[in-house]
Amino acid sequence: MRFLVCLKQVPDSTVKVKVGAGGKAVATEGITWSMSPYDEYAVELALERKDADPTTVVSVVTVGSARGRDALRQALAMGCDDATLVNAPEDLPALDVAKALAAVAKEMKPDIVLCGKQASDDDQGLVGPAVAEFLGWPHVGMLTKAVSSGDAWELWREVEGGHEVWKAKPPVVGLVHKSDKEPRYPSLPGIMKAKKKEIPEKDLASLGVTASSPKIEVVAMELPPQRGGGKIFKLDGDAKAVAEQVANLLHTESKVL
């Protein structure tokens, strides 16, 4: 059994995101980068299968700048077997990233390709389904659990109120959602081994991919209003009026109702 997990290195979720000088991208000076959280869950899901069956091979791949190496090393430290970096410009359109990943998958012939359900920088969630499309494989979204049963796999897709369990014969693509099993903390020997491990590189040309797909372009970025200037209501008898006011604000102002 072989897994290929597609990763992306993004600004860490603890980073206080700021808009950069041009106003079209976030400031990246001195920030901490890490593997996108859903990708970490994807790695964990694959490694759990490897725990159950040690003959399982888990490969990881990323498409982008050399910074992605750190995400790959993190995955190796967690226990993945090998890693590949596909060198590409950072503004490569998402569909071309997916084509590159699909090309890598065609070479590696994994049984299951996993992606985080979305990367936590652009939050698009396009690459995973696109990889499946370019491979011509079925995919399952919101994946929280994968159980092998005979020559097929039970893939658990989280939906409101429970899980749909899909039975798939590999190859298949899974788009991984958060689950209760948090990504493992790497052991120190794992970290050290990962540091020394060679990470082969590929380029887009060798995979037959050129930047050709349509892409979306950020024209402006702004921070949401700062927390702390919240509206405070005092209950002095008329609970109903306050309750209606809050409910209306949730609907009209913050649009969450």
């Binding site: 860490d12 979720s13 603890t14 980073v15 206080k16 901490t32 890490s34 903390y185």
Partner: peptide, 16 residues
């Protein structure tokens, strides 16, 4: 531990 590693504090509050 992950938070300490990435944000320099155990709660995962922004380093900045």
């Amino acid at each position: 531990m992950t938070n300490i590693e990435r944000a320099g504090n155990p709660w995962g509050e922004p380093r900045d």
